[in-house]
């Protein structure tokens, strides 16, 4: 029996190499796909009257029930005056809006609209009153200073979103979502507009270059494997402790049983 379990152990190194190879291909490929999609979304002309009219129709039929026909807000939803295109692009582009139901916070859902429709609604909301615009693509390339971004992230973001961007719990069912797999545009817009319970980080607090650096840091963490081995969800001592208790202690107990059993 001891022989067989040793054989299983010996397969591990190769399995890990294979896993790392698969992980690299998937993350690298995903990154390439993702950077080409960000380039594609920025093509709609936000100022054309045709786009704004299209956005007004979409708004009236999908959003106005809660936010009011002229964005003034109702008992069921906040006013959208001054929220800007960035807010619309974030809320609709991540599927948080339209809201499926009242709850502690709007959940991420499958996106309900095409990129063109989202852009049209953003153009319409921005045409009613000025507000934060959708960020320029040059700030979203994740080519800034990752070290500076890391420091800013640890000071401003890590207490809610976890130091590796794995997310975390807040009060009464609310939570800070994980930041891996989120488009750079949406990360930027979230900082700029402060969706739901997230505070606003305006350009005087974190300059556009600071925001670019933070995105660079997040993408660096996302696309580089952890030098310390398995991340275990990046949740820190809870996940690591659980792993050590179950597998570490389990192995020790198993060895102890074998050690004290009389040979047959």
């Amino acid at each position: 029996m001891a022989r067989r379990s040793r054989k299983a152990n010996r397969r591990h190194p190769l399995a890990t190499v294979l896993l790392i190879a698969i992980g690299l291909v998937v993350t690298g490929g995903g990154y390439a796909a993702f950077s080409s999609t960000t380039a594609a979304t920025a093509e709609t002309d936000m100022s054309s009257q045709q786009v704004i009219d299209e956005g007004e129709k979409l708004f009236a039929s999908n959003c106005a029930t809660c936010h009011g026909m002229s964005l003034q807000g109702t008992d069921d939803g906040p006013s959208l005056i001054g929220v800007g295109a960035a807010s619309v692009n974030f809320q609709v582009g991540t599927g948080r809006m339209p809201l499926a139901m009242q709850g502690p916070q709007a959940m991420q859902k499958p996106v309900q609209f095409t990129d063109e429709q989202t852009a049209a609604m953003a153009a319409y909301v921005a045409s009613i009153s000025p507000g934060p615009a959708i960020p320029d693509a040059s700030l979203l390339q994740a080519d800034g200073d990752a070290a500076n971004g890391g420091e800013l992230f640890r000071i401003n973001c890590a207490m809610c979103h976890n130091v590796a961007g794995a997310g975390g719990a807040l009060t009464e069912g609310k939570y800070a979502p994980e930041l891996t797999g989120v488009l750079a545009t949406h990360i930027y817009e979230a900082m700029l507009t402060g969706p739901q319970n997230m505070p606003v980080f305006n350009d005087d607090n974190l300059t556009p270059e600071d925001k670019r650096d933070i995105i660079t840091y997040l993408k660096y963490v996302e696309n580089n494997p952890s030098p310390g081995g398995f991340e275990l969800g990046n949740l820190g001592p809870v996940a690591e402790g659980l792993f050590a208790w179950i597998f570490g202690l389990g192995a020790i107990i198993g060895l102890m049983v074998w050690l004290t059993a009389k040979s047959n």
């Binding site: 606003v200 305006n202 005087d204 607090n205």
Partner: peptide, 12 residues
């Protein structure tokens, strides 16, 4: 500056 701080902001 006081004017830098918008409503809903948090500054460290």
């Amino acid at each position: 500056r006081a004017s830098d701080i918008t409503i809903g902001s948090v500054f460290h």
